[in-house]
Amino acid sequence: MFYPNSPQTSPQLTQIPYGQQYAMMQRQIQQPYHPFATTEPQARLYPYHYQGPIQQEQGGFITQQSTAASPQYVQMRVTPVDQSIMSGYPNQTANGSSSSSFNYNIHPQQQQQQQQQQQQLRHHAMPVGSVPLQDDRYRKQLIVNYLAPDVTSTDLHELFSRFGELDGARIIYDKQTNMSKGYGFVYFCHAEDAKEAVERMSGYEFHGKWLKVGYSTNPLNIVPSNSSPYVHAGSRGAAG
């Protein structure tokens, strides 16, 4: 039997160049792979992502010199942007860049009308829970959420009447099932009393439920100042 490094198959040491006398086997001759043993700084910083320098080929596509990437890492192929796409944008300079302001050559009167329309939209648009300043009635009506099913309009009136005089209180019921929808409205005579009720009743436990109280901004629920107070009856038909 002959071994790869046996004296019968191995040459004389004098015939082997210096430095390879003890590297006779194939696994010894093959050098191990060192990912950080390279002179390129990109490979030292990113050993798993770097795959060699990027070269520009004919046709405008950018390719990489090395083989496919590892399945664990996804390499994105980048193509140059066609400058003709950006030619339609206004205020574009000769080098292809555009300024931040756009001039669509709008007539001054049209621009003024658009600004007025935007101001009107901001004036009428009102986020949930906010209180408008032009109508004091919005500051007097509250919406009470997360009410228990057994709470009546009379219970709601008695709960909030300790903060001040009320114009009314009612629970909203479903017309088909005649069941409470879980929320109601309270109408105060003074805005200061309503503000105190919002601050003190939010998070209050009532009939096993934690109440959420806020201003009601729905104009359909506003009680006119010259109208008669609501009837605080315990029956659902009268309260709904």
Rank of each mutant, 00 (worst) to 15 (best):
F2Q: 06
F2V: 02
Y3M: 11
Y3F: 13
P4H: 13
N5R: 06
N5C: 13
N5E: 10
S6I: 11
P7I: 14
P7Q: 10
P7G: 07
P7W: 13
P7E: 07
Q8F: 15
T9S: 10
S10I: 10
S10T: 04
P11D: 09
Q15F: 15
P17C: 02
P17R: 05
Y18D: 06
G19Q: 11
Q20E: 02
Q21G: 07
Q21L: 09
Q21D: 02
Q21N: 03
Y22V: 07
Y22N: 05
A23T: 12
A23Y: 12
M24E: 03
M24D: 03
M25S: 08
M25P: 04
M25Y: 05
R27E: 12
R27G: 14
Q28W: 15
Q30E: 09
Q31C: 14
Y33Q: 13
F36Y: 04
A37C: 10
A37T: 11
A37M: 14
T39W: 15
T39E: 05
T39R: 06
E40A: 11
P41S: 04
P41Y: 07
P41M: 13
Q42W: 14
A43G: 05
A43S: 06
R44S: 09
R44K: 04
L45Q: 07
Y46V: 04
Y46H: 11
Y46G: 03
P47H: 09
Q51Y: 14
Q51L: 13
Q51P: 11
G52F: 14
G52M: 12
P53C: 15
I54T: 05
I54M: 10
I54S: 06
Q56N: 12
E57F: 15
E57R: 12
G59Y: 14
G59K: 09
G59T: 08
G60N: 12
F61K: 04
F61W: 13
I62R: 07
T63F: 15
Q64R: 03
Q65D: 11
Q65W: 13
S66W: 15
S66T: 09
S66E: 13
T67N: 06
T67G: 09
A68H: 15
A68T: 11
A68I: 13
A68M: 07
A69W: 14
A69D: 11
P71M: 07
Q72G: 11
Q72F: 15
Y73N: 06
Y73F: 10
V74L: 10
M76F: 14
R77P: 04
R77N: 10
V78D: 03
T79I: 15
T79L: 14
T79E: 03
V81N: 01
D82C: 14
Q83Y: 13
Q83M: 15
Q83D: 03
Q83K: 12
S84M: 15
I85Q: 05
M86K: 06
M86R: 05
M86T: 03
S87Y: 10
G88S: 08
N91D: 10
T93Y: 15
T93S: 09
A94V: 13
A94S: 08
A94Q: 10
N95L: 10
N95S: 11
N95D: 10
G96K: 04
G96L: 11
S97Q: 13
S98F: 14
S98V: 14
S101D: 03
S101P: 13
S101G: 12
F102I: 08
Y104H: 11
N105G: 12
I106L: 11
I106M: 10
H107Y: 12
Q109H: 14
Q109R: 07
Q109V: 13
Q110P: 09
Q110S: 09
Q111C: 08
Q111M: 06
Q112M: 10
Q112D: 09
Q113G: 12
Q113I: 10
Q113A: 12
Q114C: 14
Q114P: 08
Q114W: 14
Q115L: 13
Q116E: 13
Q116G: 11
Q116D: 06
Q117A: 12
Q117D: 13
Q117P: 09
Q117E: 08
Q118D: 11
Q118Y: 09
Q118R: 10
Q119P: 07
Q119N: 13
L121E: 06
L121W: 08
H124S: 04
H124M: 12
P127V: 14
P127H: 15
V128R: 08
V128G: 10
G129E: 11
G129I: 03
V131W: 09
P132V: 04
P132W: 03
L133M: 04
D135S: 03
R137H: 04
R137F: 07
R137W: 01
R139E: 04
R139C: 07
L142A: 02
I143Q: 00
I143E: 00
I143G: 00
N145C: 06
N145R: 02
Y146P: 00
L147T: 04
A148G: 06
A148K: 02
P149F: 04
P149G: 07
P149Q: 08
D150P: 06
V151Q: 03
V151L: 06
V151G: 03
T152F: 07
S153L: 04
T154A: 09
T154P: 11
T154D: 05
T154E: 08
D155N: 15
D155R: 02
L156P: 14
H157M: 11
E158G: 09
L159Q: 01
L159M: 14
L159P: 10
S161K: 03
S161F: 11
R162P: 13
F163N: 03
F163P: 11
F163A: 04
G164H: 03
E165C: 13
L166S: 03
D167I: 01
G168D: 01
G168Q: 03
A169V: 04
A169D: 02
R170F: 00
I172F: 00
I172R: 00
D174N: 12
K175N: 11
K175S: 04
K175H: 12
K175M: 04
N178E: 10
N178Y: 04
M179Y: 14
S180M: 13
S180W: 09
K181Q: 02
K181F: 01
K181C: 01
G182V: 03
Y183L: 00
G184H: 02
F185W: 00
V186M: 02
V186E: 00
V186R: 00
Y187R: 01
Y187V: 00
F188E: 00
F188C: 03
F188P: 01
H190K: 05
H190Q: 09
H190A: 04
A191T: 07
E192H: 07
E192G: 03
A194H: 02
A194P: 05
K195Y: 11
E196N: 04
A197K: 00
A197E: 02
V198G: 01
E199N: 13
R200S: 06
R200T: 11
M201S: 01
M201G: 02
S202F: 03
Y204A: 03
Y204L: 07
E205R: 02
E205W: 15
F206W: 14
F206V: 02
H207Q: 04
H207Y: 06
H207W: 01
G208S: 07
W210E: 01
L211N: 01
K212G: 01
K212C: 01
V213Y: 01
V213Q: 01
V213I: 01
V213F: 00
G214T: 04
Y215H: 01
S216K: 00
N218D: 00
N218I: 00
P219T: 01
P219Q: 01
L220D: 00
L220S: 03
N221S: 09
N221Q: 13
N221F: 14
I222W: 15
I222M: 08
I222H: 08
V223F: 11
V223R: 09
P224D: 03
P224Y: 09
S225K: 10
N226L: 06
S227R: 10
S228M: 11
P229I: 10
P229R: 13
V231A: 07
V231T: 03
V231P: 10
V231W: 06
H232T: 06
H232M: 10
H232K: 01
H232Q: 11
A233H: 12
S235R: 09
S235T: 04
R236G: 03
R236P: 05
A238F: 08
A238Y: 15
A238R: 12
A239P: 12
G240Y: 14
